[in-house]
Design a protein around this nucleic acid. Structure first.
Length: 604
RNA sequence: GCGGGUGUAGCUCAGCGGUUAGAGCGCCGGCCUGUCACGCCGGAGGCCGCGGGUUCAAAUCCCGUCAUCCGCGCCA
């Protein structure tokens, strides 16, 4: 069936077109039938323009229903002063329709896609099921456009830096190290399987051995792990690797790329974000000490404090016994928290308990002249609270000093081991930051976290596990701890964190077979198993592998940061729902008997 | 694997032991010549997620189950 093709786009029509006869193709976004007057807001990918249709000229206007696909021809007319709509970019004009055709009628919609306010609450599964309708919304188009432009700018930047984009296989070998693999049965030998790549990690290192020197790819990654708001079974990373570089070279390149790309996107899309500043740098140890985690939100301060020595001999049994057991008393300030009711503090304690806290001890810091104050400090601060009775004046002074407390603060203490306590405290700090309005949505605070430990002790398995992955290079000077104190070995490993979420992770890789062999041994990978799983890597490295390193920033997460979306589904065209199911395609699905037979498979 | 929330009209929700289950939006019909979230009048539309139980009586209480959302474990 033929149709009259557009001469213009809806969103571009303006006063200069007045008098012209034009044709538009698009959808009926909103319809206002006034009896003697008929208005349609027509939408295409560029925007909206109002159609004016004279009902006297057309007999069957009820066929123009919500989201019907239309071709419309008419004359662009200026609107009179009183009928202009300043809220619309095309609001100075309208199209006086002389002919139209319904290219395709539309059934009643499953959700009100022309109403952004109502769409905010619509059932997520329904939106995913009818994704082709959800994506008609201008706000969704804009996210896809932002994503496409981000990728385009990344590509441009890296190509100018001498990078080559290389595709790597989607069906490959299972290397059961990190996440669970998605598996694909191999028809020709029924006991064998391909795996979908968790990332192109090994391929990109092999590309370095191949002499590509500067590789990147907008790479799809697959991990069969349980879902979260910011995770999907398949997601996209900017995968990147460079040869003959130090850590500093990778950091410089990525920081330059990020600031260029993000600042351009902020400008191009008019995002309500401040320009990205040079990245802050923290070591892993500093980050954990100051913020309790390796992904601190640096939009605000409130560093954790350590009150262990201040209270280790106090009359408060919980604190004393924790210290005696080798634990620590660390805490965080809650500005304004001194006003919290007992019940509200209880809510905060429940929050802490969700993350494994045994309890939450608090002291309110107020003006020294306030009521119920148990102790007034030399500087005039008053302290009160249910545990205040346990401390001596010296202990109060020490607590106030280490916490840098101010009047109005609620000091929140967690008594536990360093790691377990930090796990609670960093979440508590983020919660306090949110409550106090300190997590400014206009700010993108990027920071590098450097010098991660190479390995961490796995209590369950009683062995050392790689913190990053087994090809990560130890810092040369730390190799002396390999036998005596492996936990002390730092790696040439780096993360980019933005606003409290991990955005990118990377490292300098091991390129020397003898070092790789020692690391395999350290993490309990026997030579035989290493050969079976990674023999291709070990062999490749034996043919003159260059020193190399790389990084892999998450594309989805970058877009989420730019659009302030909390859910990764919002920045993907066709996401799955929480259990990995695709309600639109109905995938995964059963296969027919012939496919079972062909694959040599049966249910156990 | 675990915890919490939500399942009632096409959508968003109210109803939380007691007449015939409601509202707003949408949909259908009527009226309306300057609307732009048009307005006004009328109407249709419900296995109250599913299964079981308690009760004279269940959308409402209990048990189970399924789906979905959020989180924990997990995610080199």
């Amino acid at each position: 069936m033929s149709f009259i093709q557009r001469t213009h786009d809806c969103g571009e029509i303006h006063a200069a077109h007045a008098g012209q006869t034009i044709t538009l193709n698009g959808w009926a976004h909103r319809i206002r039938d006034l009896g003697g007057l008929f208005f349609v807001d027509m939408r295409d990918r560029t925007g909206l323009v109002q159609l004016f249709i004279d009902p006297a000229t057309f007999s069957n206007l009820q066929e123009i229903r919500h989201e019907a696909c239309l071709s419309v021809t008419g004359e662009v007319r200026m609107r009179s002063e009183v009928t202009r709509n300043p809220k619309m970019p095309t609001g100075d004009v309208e199209v006086f329709v002389t002919s139209y055709s319904v290219l395709s009628p539309a059934k009643t919609l499953p959700f009100p896609l022309s109403d952004e306010e109502q769409m905010a609450n619509v059932n997520e599964e329904l939106r995913v099921k009818h994704r082709y309708l959800d994506l008609r919304r201008p706000s969704m188009y804009r996210k896809l456009a932002l994503r496409a432009r981000a990728i385009s700018k990344i590509r441009t930047y890296l190509e100018e830096e001498g990078f080559l984009e290389v595709e790597t296989p989607i069906i490959t070998k299972s290397t059961p190290e990190g996440a669970r693999d998605y598996l694909v049965p191999y028809r020709l030998e029924p006991s064998k399987f391909y795996a979908l790549p968790q990332s192109p990690q090994q391929y990109k290192q092999l590309l370095m051995v191949a002499g590509i020197e500067r590789y990147f790819q907008i790479a799809r990654c697959f991990r069969d792990e349980s879902q979260r708001a910011d995770r999907q079974p398949e997601f996209t990373q900017l995968d990147l690797e460079m040869s003959f570089v130090t850590q500093e070279d990778v950091l410089d390149l990525i920081e330059g790329m990020t600031r260029t790309v993000v600042n351009e996107l902020i400008q191009e899309f008019g995002l309500a974000k401040e320009r990205v500043e040079p990245f802050v740098r923290l070591t892993y140890d500093e980050a954990v000490l100051l913020y309790g985690c390796d992904k601190p939100d640096l939009r605000f301060g409130l560093p954790l404090f350590d009150a262990t020595t201040a209270v280790e001999n106090s009359g408060f049994g919980v604190f004393r016994s924790t210290v005696e057991a080798g634990g620590m008393i660390r805490g965080v300030r809650y500005p304004g928290g001194a006003n919290l009711s007992r019940k509200e503090v209880g809510v905060l304690e429940e929050f802490a308990k969700e993350f494994g806290a045994k309890g939450l001890a608090t002291l309110a810091v107020v003006d020294g002249s306030a009521e119920e104050v148990v102790y007034t400090s030399k500087s005039g601060l008053g302290v009160k609270g249910s545990i205040a009775k346990f401390f001596s004046p010296e202990e109060f002074e020490a607590i106030l000093a280490v916490s840098s407390a101010e009047a109005g603060d609620l000091l929140c203490f967690i008594a536990d081991g360093y790691a377990a306590g930090n796990n609670v405290l960093y979440r508590l700090r983020n919660e306090i930051g949110s409550r106090c309005g300190l997590r400014d949505p206009r700010v993108l605070k990027f920071c590098w976290v450097l010098d991660f430990p190479l390995v961490e002790w796995n209590e369950d398995e009683q062995r050392w596990d790689p913190t990053h992955h087994l090809f990560t290079s130890p810092k040369h000077e730390d190799l002396i701890y390999l036998d005596s104190d492996p936990g002390r070995i730092r790696a040439d490993c780096y993360d980019i964190v933005c606003n409290g979420t991990e955005w990118a992770s990377g490292s300098i890789r091991i390129h020397q077979p003898d070092v790789q062999a020692r690391i395999c041994e350290l993490i309990g990978l026997s030579a035989e198993v290493a050969q079976e799983r990674f023999g291709h890597m070990l062999e490749a490295f034996s043919y003159g592998a260059p020193p190399h390193g790389g990084i892999a920033p998450g594309i989805d997460r970058l877009i989420m940061l730019l659009t302030d979306d909390e859910n990764i589904r919002e920045v993907m065209a066709f996401p799955k729902v929480g259990n990995g199911y695709d309600p639109m395609m109905d995938a995964p699905s059963t296969i027919d008997a012939q496919q079972w037979a062909e694959m040599g498979l049966r249910l156990s």
